[in-house]
Design a protein around this nucleic acid. Structure first.
Lengths: 189, 189
DNA sequence: CAGTGCTTGTGTTCACATTCACAAGCACCA
DNA sequence: TGGTGCTTGTGAATGTGAACACAAGCACTG
C-alpha cells in the first residue's frame, strides 16, 4: 500500500514526503506511518520527512520485489485474459511469462505475445524460474489446479476463485473474491 | 467469508455445521467462530452445531444482502467485460443492470444482454434503484468517475483501480488492487 | 434413566497494534 | 548565531480482538 502511494508521488516528481502528508492521503494517523517506517529501519530526516527514492527502494527490498518476478497465469477465460493484459503488474516488477488452460480450443492461441499452453505442461515451473502463479479458473477446478501448481514447484498463488484452497505450509495463497468484496458494501450503505 | 463457506456447505446438502468444522475449513480457531456467531445472536445447539439455513439467513440479514441488489458497471474494457459476465455475483444476490463507458466505439454495443451506455448518462442512478457501482476504469480516471457516481446518488463503490479515491463520508469505497495482492506473495516465498 | 461424547456460549487472559505525547534534530531566517 | 517552525523516532498508554478454559446443555446408548 505504501509502495503504491509513494510510487505515485515519485511519478509526480516529489522528492520528500512527510508522515503527515502520507497519513492524509491514505486515511491513516501519522504516528502509525512513522512506527511502520521505523520498523523498516529509520531513514527519515527531522523537519523534512522521508526521501521518496529511499523509501521505495527499502520497501521493495523488504517485500523481496527487487528485480523482475516471473509469474504463470492459469485459466484463459474472460478474467484470465483481462489479467494477462493487465498493465498494473509492472509497478511491482511482475511479468506473466506463461499462460495455461484446459480447453483444446484455446491451446495454441495467443494472448498478447504469450501462447496458451495445455495445463498438462504445468510441471517444472520452478525450473523455468517461475515461483508465482495467478489462478483464474472456476471454483470447482481451483483446488485440483492448485495442487498441480504446488507439484510444479510454485511457492505463491494468487487465487481469483471464490473458495479456499488448501496447500502445504511452504506455499502462500492470497485470495481475491471479487463478489465478496462487493458483498461488504450494502452493510455500510 | 462465512456466507461463502456456509453456502458451499448447503450446496453439498449439509444441514448443520460445528464451529470446529468451520474453523478447520477456514483456517481459524473455533472460539473465534463461536464468538462471532454469538454477536450475530446465539442460535447454535449444544452438542450439534449451527443450522446452516439459519446461519445463511441471519448473515444475509446482517449484511443487508436480502433480496436482489442492482449494481452499475463503469468501464467496459477487458476487466469490465470480465466482471459484467462474472457468474460469482449471484451468490450474494447482485445483478449488474447497467454498463457505462466513455469510448464512442463501445457505446451502443452489448455485453451479454446489457447495452453499453455513454458515461454522460450516469446521473440519477439512485432513481433507477442503483446504489452500488463497480469501477473498472484506468487509475487516472478513477477519481473523476467516482465523483460523478457520487453525484448520481451511488452509496457504495467497488474500486478496481490501483489508487485511493476520495469520496464524502456517506459513500463507502472498497478497493481491490490485484497487482498489490500479488505483490504480497514474494515476501513469504 | 444415568453415563458418555460432543458442542455451544462466555468470562478471563493474553497479545498486539494503534494512538498519544514529547524530546531531539534539521532548516531556514533575521 | 539564536530563534522559530516543522518533522522524526519512540516510550507509555490505550484500545481491541483473538485464544483459552470451562460450565451448561443436547443427543444417543445400554
Amino acid at each position: 500500500m505504501y509502495l503504491r502511494a509513494i510510487s505515485f508521488l515519485r511519478r509526480q516528481g516529489q522528492d520528500y514526503v512527510s508522515s503527515r502528508d502520507l497519513a492524509d492521503q491514505l486515511h491513516l494517523k501519522s504516528p502509525q506511518i512513522r512506527k511502520d517506517f521505523s520498523y523498516f529501519g529509520a531513514f527519515g530526516v527531522k523537519g523534512i520527512g522521508y526521501r521518496v527514492d529511499t523509501l521505495i527502494g527499502r520497501i521493495r527490498e523488504i517485500l523481496k520485489l527487487s528485480g523482475t518476478q516471473k509469474a504463470a497465469l492459469i485459466g484463459a477465460g474472460r478474467l484470465g485474459k483481462a489479467l494477462a493484459l493487465y498493465p498494473g503488474f509492472g509497478l511491482y516488477g511482475f511479468e506473466i511469462v506463461e499462460i495455461f488452460d484446459v480447453s483444446p480450443k484455446k491451446i495454441g492461441k495467443k494472448i498478447g505475445n504469450t501462447k496458451i499452453q495445455s495445463i498438462k505442461h504445468l510441471g517444472n515451473l520452478e525450473k523455468r524460474g517461475i515461483r508465482l502463479a495467478i489462478l483464474a479458473v472456476p471454483a470447482e477446478a481451483a483446488q485440483e489446479t492448485a495442487e498441480r501448481l504446488v507439484e510444479g514447484g510454485v511457492r505463491g498463488i494468487l487465487n481469483m476463485a471464490p473458495c479456499y484452497i488448501t496447500v502445504p505450509k511452504r506455499v502462500r495463497v492470497q485470495t481475491i473474491d471479487i463478489a465478496m468484496e462487493l458483498g461488504i458494501l450494502p452493510y455500510y450503505v
